[in-house]
């Protein structure tokens, strides 16, 4: 078996009395999409944020390509090869689409302390940014202010910035949220293309998308992983169905397809 790209070992996090994450261990293997599902408040976002470094874990370890990154800052983890997209679209609103991606290319290159040459005249920066825009079909929007993009386009821009980091692993927190059904089909295509660049740890509520995309699923309930396995294994798992019963976001597809 190959080594995991990303390995989370015995991660724990409490917020006062609330246990957000309890002894979570999971792995992201090369070339796979590993989906993280679970009811609202299960701690999926907290887990992603701990891996990305926005939230510091109480205990446990996070390894990226075998290297312990659990004490690094967010920016150091990004440079080490983690690219994240946020649950709520997070771009630089008053930058053009091109400038947003240039920023990511610049972050990847590690040279942000250059003071005198105009950024827009640096071909290595601009051309690479344009090539990523072309990959996501955003070329025509390059001059548009990010704040003026539609919701779906902003989601794409975020993915484009993640791609520009040429990461070892993607952490995507609900990339389909709010893009509509046509948008989510397009996003599904996009994510399966993204997977060829680096494996994806995916938090997603859209179960159709999850079942189409995921190679592996882990189910998080009250901060614990109660089941982990292939799509079929999870569908058959009684504990998972139990956990979803009566839950607000009961995914119809879990039942329909079983």
């Amino acid at each position: 078996m190959p080594d995991p790209v990303l390995a989370v070992r015995h991660l724990c996090k409490r917020f006062d009395a609330v246990i957000a994450c309890e002894d979570v261990t999971l792995e992201l293997m090369p070339g796979e999409i590993h989906a993280l599902i679970g009811p609202n408040g299960a701690g999926k976002s907290t887990l992603i944020r701990q891996i990305a470094g926005n939230v510091r874990q109480d205990q446990g370890q996070i390894l990226l390509a075998g290297r312990d990154i659990s004490r690094l800052s967010v920016d150091a983890r990004a440079r080490a090869g983690l690219a994240q997209s946020f649950q709520i679209s997070t771009v630089i609103p008053n930058f053009s689409v091109l400038q947003n991606v240039m920023l990511a290319v610049q972050g990847k290159s590690g040279h942000s302390f250059r003071f005198f040459r105009k950024a827009i005249k640096q071909r290595e920066l601009v051309e690479r940014a344009r090539s990523y825009l072309a990959q996501l079909g955003l070329t025509e929007r390059e001059k548009t202010n990010a704040a003026a993009l539609s919701h779906g386009e902003r989601r794409k821009l975020e993915l484009c910035m993640a791609l520009a980091l040429e990461p070892q692993a993607f952490l995507l927190d609900e990339p389909m949220a709010g893009v509509g059904s046509a948008g989510s089909t397009a996003m599904t295509t996009l994510l399966s293309a993204l997977k060829t660049q680096a494996p994806i740890l995916l938090v997603e509520h859209d179960m159709d998308a999850v079942f189409t995309l995921a190679d592996r699923l882990s189910v998080l309930v009250y901060g614990r992983i109660i089941a982990s396995g292939s799509v079929n294994e999870i569908r058959r798992n009684a504990a998972v169905r139990e956990a979803y019963m009566g839950s607000d976001d009961l995914p119809a597809s879990v039942q329909r397809r079983s």
């Binding site: 920016d75 930058f95 990511a104 972050g107 003071f115 005198f116 105009k118 950024a119």
Partner: peptide, 29 residues
């Protein structure tokens, strides 16, 4: 004028608008 248009200026103005995003692309705000 030079600083604002440089790579540094790009990072600085981005950090004003969204430091979380700047950190996420590997630049320490």
């Amino acid at each position: 004028s030079a600083l604002v248009q440089s790579r540094f200026g790009l990072a600085l103005q981005a950090a004003r608008q969204n430091p979380v995003r700047v950190a996420a692309v590997g630049i320490a705000p």
